[in-house]
Amino acid sequence: MIPFNFIYYRPDSLQEAADIYSTLQSKGQKAVYFAGGSEIITMCRTGSIQPKAVIDIKNIPECGLLSLYNQKLQIGSVCTLNQISESKLFPLMRLACGRIADHTNQCRITLGGNLCGSIIYRETSLPLLLADAEITLYGPEGERTVPLRSVFYQCMQLKPGEMIVQVQIPVWALSARHYHIKKTANEKIDYPLVSVAAICKDSKLRLAFSGICSYPFRSEQMESALNQQTKSFEERVKQAAELLPEPVYADAEGSGEYRLFVFKNTLRQLLEDWDNGKI
């Protein structure tokens, strides 16, 4: 039960959606874009947000695309994690989507919602960062398509009123060798202690992480450390851990020390598997 009411809009176009947002904003009224709704509904229920309006963007055609076009895979922002998995078009993304929340929730949680979520893990960002994905955004100032990494720094850096329309993934990434591992405290359905996604590009590993710090990231410095073929696994892992962009995240799921222990184990496992041709 959500104790308060809001206005519900279901626009049919990007333009309509942005117009609604601008109009409300000019009246000083808070609106949120709404797709799968899981997080927004929860936050409304518990009282951490109280929007005046929700703008359901699931009826906007561009946001629902899921297809190969022009050497790129387009994934609309309102595609559910389950739709992305079931399409089987992007194997690494499929692995990541399969480990976010649970299967039934994967039928509701959307790509856009996961990228923009307030929960810090945003694990769909990992495959996209590794694949040099581009992202198309739409807002009151119109549409723009930019590399994801230019607007995803810790979390989505959107302008007011901007929404995600879709992401585009170059085809090389769809068939690249890849690796995904998520470690949780105990239960499989849980936030990650450590999530690692890796993809092989030009015989080098690219790596992105969630859970180990307070935001998801790809680190080229850590990649360099881990790609040093001449050094032992142990040395590479140690160096990579020293290059974490911030102190290790800690909460009740896992202390910082323990997360780091799990992180190092996971990286070592990854390097071994890489070495053994298991990736």
Partner: peptide, 10 residues
């Protein structure tokens, strides 16, 4: 969400 019970599979 944070207080975990055993799920099927475990």
């Amino acid at each position: 969400r944070t207080y975990k019970l055993m799920h099927i599979g475990q």
